[in-house]
Nucleic acid binder design. Structure first.
Lengths: 257, 257
DNA sequence: TCAAAAGTGTTTCTTTTACACCCATGA
DNA sequence: TCATGGGTGTAAAAGAAACACTTTTGA
């Protein structure tokens, strides 16, 4: 089951007090993998958020000795009895308390020596969450939102994984309405445009941007307006997921490379 | 290292007499995984070819009891000391004797019960090979080219994997020059158009198709003509990989969904 | 000389881009 | 009343789609 769009709802419960870091048993299991000569499987989540007109990613400080003080993605070994997707949702839930979020598999990374202690193949998942819906509560390992554009010194091959996921996001957001998962349910067109401009690192013409989105007929005017802005308030829209889902997908886009 | 385009060359050696099916030891290892309670990792290759104006995929009969007589993709467990990509190239080499082919990872499939004997996560790779460059020599397990459009009764979740890879191919071929890997090095525009029409299952206008490809300026006129055709022979072209590689990739395609 | 596919241009329509002024709000 | 960003339309350009006749070859 390939997760499609899941509309983001205000979290009914942000109770994640029970979230474990999942880091405790990892070392033991890694040791086992090491001695077995088997291959371990993990999932790493690249959790994107959008705040202050910038794309952010959720990171922790690695507690693996070799990579002390380097930034690390949120990952964990896959349990024997859980699907890959389930593992990704679990990691997300443990860290953010949310499970009704956008999540999609991006790529498997399996270089022999990507993990210094043992052979571990990892499956990278991309997740987009609306930062407003979740105040980080568990701050183990300096969990925090980090700007995507100013990153260096990551643990393992996590820089590579992040790069691949970021490129994936840049492409995907243009042909799939992922972006709305990063915004509040009701948003202004300016917020939407800021999101696209930040992710793609381009400037877009405001009028053409509006025209484009309105012509898709997937935005619904909520009748509400922005508040607390020091200028004329913009209209608030919401994205019509139902209508989008019912739209038929075209298989012919036109050859271009 | 994400394999980009590799131009297909005539194979200098199609000697693959030493290719092993890789199936002998699989059962033993699966048993071990089963008893260990660990998770196995395999690679499955979806090897597409194009012949007789139809898209084909290379399949064998499964020798796993439960799926006797069902069609199966070419796969094998990943060795401890090899990258995922290497494993995919190995499988390809063992089966086709070629290793200078197009190969790309598509997706990991990790449902808990996708393999009836043990927990095995598989990474699907898509490979495109030019059928003319390889006469199948090892026909173990009824190895053969099967039409993609008339398939049923596949082993494991291989139907699902094939479907995902086929959809991936349909999309990918429109924005990436994969298709040339399925054709002879020198081809006519009609062959190229037949390829696109077969893969996408659409009819295309001949004049617009030509216009489109010529405007990309990536086809080189070889000066040669088709032979042995019962009508006016078409010009033969080759694809200029160098020029394509040097082209800068645009990150802005236009929002459309 | 016939059958079959190659080769070739123009027009129409659609989509994309570029661009400037008035409007509503809060300070 | 000012500063700030919201909201709007049109013209030009580029790209995609529709469409028919002549040419070359082998049989």
């Amino acid at each position: 089951m390939n997760p499609e769009i899941i509309p983001n709802e205000d979290p009914s419960s942000t109770d994640n007090a029970a979230a474990s870091t999942g880091q405790k048993n990892v070392k033991t299991i890694i040791k086992q993998i090491e001695s077995d000569g088997t291959i371990g499987i993990s999932v790493d989540c690249v959790i994107f958020g959008f705040d202050d007109n910038e794309l952010k990613v959720l990171l922790i400080k690695s507690d693996f000795e070799k990579y002390q003080n380097k930034w690390s993605l949120l990952g964990d070994l896959v349990n024997n009895h859980e699907d890959l997707d389930e593992a990704a949702y679990r990691i997300l839930r443990e860290r953010t308390g949310m499970d009704d979020v956008y999540l999609e598999q991006v790529k498997a990374f399996g270089e022999v020596s990507r993990h210094p202690a043992a052979r571990v193949v990892t499956i990278a998942y991309c997740s987009l969450i609306n930062i407003e819906h979740h105040q980080l509560k568990i701050l183990d390992n300096e969990l925090h939102w980090h700007r995507v554009t100013t990153l260096s010194e990551m643990a393992f091959d996590h820089q590579k994984i992040l790069d691949v996921c970021y490129e994936w996001l840049q492409k995907r957001i243009q042909e799939h309405p992922l972006g709305f998962s990063l915004l509040p349910k009701k948003f202004s067109l300016r917020e939407l445009q800021n999101l696209y401009e930040a992710i793609l690192d381009v400037k877009l013409d405001r009028r053409n941007f509006r025209k484009k989105f309105f012509s898709m007929e997937l935005l619904e005017d909520t009748g509400e307006l922005e508040t607390d802005v020091p200028h004329r308030p913009g209209k608030l829209y919401k994205f019509n997921y139902d209508k989008y889902q019912k739209k038929e997908r075209k298989k012919w886009f036109g050859i271009d490379f």
